[in-house]
Design a protein around this nucleic acid. Structure first.
Length: 159
DNA sequence: GCCAACGTTGGC
DNA sequence: GCCAACGTTGGC
């Protein structure tokens, strides 16, 4: 079991939308490191911190889980789409995505300032200056700590 | 292969 | 709106 964090801008795709949709494909990631993570490392059942970026304050909104492992991001083939990449094709896909589903929405969000102020989260990649990766790994201890800050425990999210 | 220019991310 | 950090592009 691995743990991850995925960033989304809430005015584009908030956690509540994931709840409404029941499941979604995580399209549009155009960073190689994030792609590799989704293509090679994320497994069905892995848990994901759903992070809202570019909002005040930035925060973790809840927990999601991987329900489908890496497969080609077909939005890269749509010449009229926002995520079109002429160098990607069905024969030779350049970009990959996973599907996720909601697990638990935090009753109280876990804000970035609060996370920065928690010594137990010291060393968490998300809190490093200049960290821009939209899909990143989370150590289990950090995952559990964020969960605790959100008023929950690991029993609430494990099947 | 270097690196300057440029574009994007995302906190503040 | 600003800008630091960082990734990508493309000329050489």
């Amino acid at each position: 079991m691995n743990y991850w964090l995925m960033k989304s801008e809430p005015h584009v795709y908030p956690y509540e939308q994931l709840v409404e949709d029941g499941q979604t494909h995580w399209d549009g990631v155009r960073n190689y490191q994030a792609r590799n993570t989704m293509r090679d490392s994320m497994k069905v059942g892995d848990l994901v911190l759903f992070y809202h970026s570019n909002t005040k304050p930035p925060h973790v909104a809840g927990v999601a889980k991987v329900v489908r492992e890496g497969y080609p991001d077909f939005t890269s083939w749509d010449a009229n789409g926002h995520y079109f990449d002429p160098k990607s094709s069905p024969d030779s896909p350049r970009w990959f995505m996973v599907d996720i589903a909601p697990v638990l929405g935090f009753s109280a969000i876990v804000s970035l300032p609060d996370m920065k102020g928690n010594p137990n989260l010291e060393g968490m990649p998300l809190l490093r200056k200049g960290q821009r990766l939209s899909v990143q790994t989370v150590d289990e201890v950090y995952f559990q700590e964020v969960l605790a800050m959100g008023g929950h425990s690991i029993e609430d999210v494990h099947p």
